[in-house]
């Protein structure tokens, strides 16, 4: 456990010691700022009944941040270590494969959550400006955080897995971006095939990321969605462990 915490600290520290960490934070800040601006301009024109979090979630910015930032955050996890050779010093230290995978995953997830903190500042400012406490209730806020966290789990675990397959950070980022966007686009595929008979449209509807997220921003925490996100995460983490272990198969 102590070794795991040492690894986790190093992973988190690595983000803040590296240039790419700050670039990610700055880019996300910019996108959040733009989304804040568009939110304010919409609210200035007409009143709305929609809760603020859902308002934000409906904009493209949320998905843009999620799909763009997660590959950039996770691309370094394994690929950089493999490229620089420190993977060999890491894996010849008395550390198991699972703690390494979990520490890298949780480190990236921690950084991802830090990256989102300005969002709550934005929402709080709007709430202050509108003077309406119901615009952002603590329940919806908590639901949104949980939703962002769970979606992050899925995309971060995907990114870590992609990174463990290659020596190149670029390839890692491209792979996780392509698969990530693919997963996201399934949400749009679902309505268009809903008229088809059989099980296919039903499965697609269940796999839709957006559908699952919508409930969270309304403040509804449904265990089905939690289980859905967590099982995808566990699946990718399992693949990640196998990829790390695969050096012993060759």
């Amino acid at each position: 456990m102590r070794i795991f915490l040492t690894l986790l600290r190093r992973e988190l520290g690595g983000y803040f010691a590296s240039f790419s960490g700050y670039v990610v934070i700055a880019s996300v800040q910019l996108l959040l700022g733009l989304s804040f601006y568009s939110l304010v301009s919409v609210l200035n024109q007409e009143g709305s009944e929609t809760p603020l979090a859902e308002f934000f979630y409906e904009t493209l910015y949320f998905w843009l941040i999620l799909l763009m930032a997660t590959p950039v955050i996770t691309m370094r996890t394994f690929a950089l270590e493999k490229y620089s050779g420190t993977y060999e010093t890491l894996m010849t230290a008395p550390v198991g494969d699972v703690p390494v995978v979990l520490a890298k995953f949780l480190g990236a997830l921690g950084f991802y959550m830090v990256m989102w903190t300005p969002l709550f500042g934005c929402l709080w400012v709007i709430r202050q400006l509108t003077g309406d406490p119901t615009a952002l209730e603590s329940g919806t806020a908590a639901g949104t955080v949980l939703g962002i966290l769970l979606l992050g789990c899925v995309y971060i675990s995907l990114g870590c897995f992609a990174s463990s397959l290659t020596h190149s950070q670029i390839i890692a980022a491209m792979t996780s971006f392509a698969v990530g966007v693919g997963l996201y686009l399934l949400s749009f595929l679902a309505p268009s095939v809903s008229t088809l008979p059989g099980w296919f449209p039903k499965v697609l509807k269940q796999m839709s990321m957006m559908e699952h997220m919508r409930e969270f921003v309304r403040g509804v925490v449904d265990t089905r969605h939690v289980v859905y996100y967590l099982s995808i995460t566990v699946f990718f983490l399992f693949l990640n462990c196998k990829a790390v272990e695969s050096r012993r198969w060759k």
Binding site: R2, I3, S84, T86, Y87, E88, T92, A93, P94, V95
Partner: peptide
């Protein structure tokens, strides 16, 4: 692994860390 100290070819290091910090990290690991 507990009994060996291994320095691979080309001596890979975490170049973003400070010497003492790196050695402390490795010692804890």
């Amino acid at each position: 692994r507990r009994r060996i100290g291994y320095m691979p070819e080309n001596n890979p290091l975490h170049t973003d860390m400070r010497v003492r910090e790196y050695l402390k990290f490795r010692a804890r690991l």
